[in-house]
Design a protein around this nucleic acid. Structure first.
Lengths: 151, 151
DNA sequence: CCTTGACTTCAAGTTTACTTGAACTTGTAG
DNA sequence: CTACAAGTTCAAGTAAACTTGAAGTCAAGG
């Protein structure tokens, strides 16, 4: 039994579209060996790598950031539990920060917006101290640009 | 004293770029009156509307979704606390769900990925029951496409 | 042998949320 | 009255993360 996976097998197992897998490979997030024909073959370890990618995306990380994290994994052997733990450790913190922000949003939404005390205060609520901490979809150029708030 | 704001005043007060404000108006998220010259004038109520938009974005909502929410506000008077509460009420639930997902991710990251029990299980962790609940940046076409997981 | 499905590359298209630039008009301070 | 800042529209550009289509190659079953 071959222990490697074709791109469609990997796609089915991971839930990630084959086109996305090719894209990830192009970006250097995953690797494959090629058959003489040029067809890709992925190891099963790629599944865990993909899981990590999917997780990280849900946390709002860009593929560039995720790639940087994955680069920290050892290359001399297939990453084990301990190797992954090195990556996931700081993430608990990241997740906790995100949760804390959501709590703030929840409070802010209930109190600040609805009661009418709001003017430019909401920026503090949304982005208290981290200028570059833009999570969520789309560009957020408005974040970290409080310097012009002179009114 | 004029109680209306020019686009740059509004921009400074809200932290949202003037170009974005024009874009929001074009999308129907905010409104303005026009002077004879064509210059926009915004009421102060727009500030709260903007706060809502900014909040909602941080929760991962698209401008289309946000627009749909804002359309629920009454048009016969300037929305008050009670009006906003109608919108923000269900949001606590939404935020709580998001927080719950983050908790799952945290646990999953620590346990499932690092221990190696992972294959396609992670999809359940990431997206337990809500197919369309794609938060975070970028397209997530892989979500809600579990039907082909026959392997 | 032949067909069908899976695979390949490469270029171009898609979506969201804006920004940027050009060309022009208005408003205000001195 | 004359700068100059601030406003306008419109078209085009940007970024991320993919998807789609075209055109061709490869592998397996009958």
């Amino acid at each position: 039994m071959e222990t490697t996976l074709t791109i469609n097998q990997l796609s089915r197992r991971s839930g990630v579209a084959a086109s996305a897998l090719r894209y990830y490979e192009e970006r250097g997030l995953i690797q494959s060996e090629r058959r003489g024909s040029g067809h890709r073959r992925f190891t099963r370890a790629t599944l865990r790598r993909l899981a990590f990618i999917v997780f990280a995306q849900r946390l709002g990380m860009s593929l560039a950031e995720i790639g940087a994290e994955l680069d920290k994994l050892p290359t001399d052997h297939v990453p084990k539990g301990a190797d992954w733990s090195l990556l996931s450790g700081p993430w608990s913190t990241r997740i906790d920060e995100r949760i804390a922000e959501l709590e703030r949003l929840k409070t802010g939404l209930a109190q600040c917006i609805s009661c009418g005390c709001l003017s430019l205060e909401f920026c503090r609520l949304v982005n208290p101290h981290d200028k570059a901490g833009a999570l969520g979809p789309g560009p957020h150029y408005w974040l970290g640009d409080q310097s012009s708030n002179d009114d």
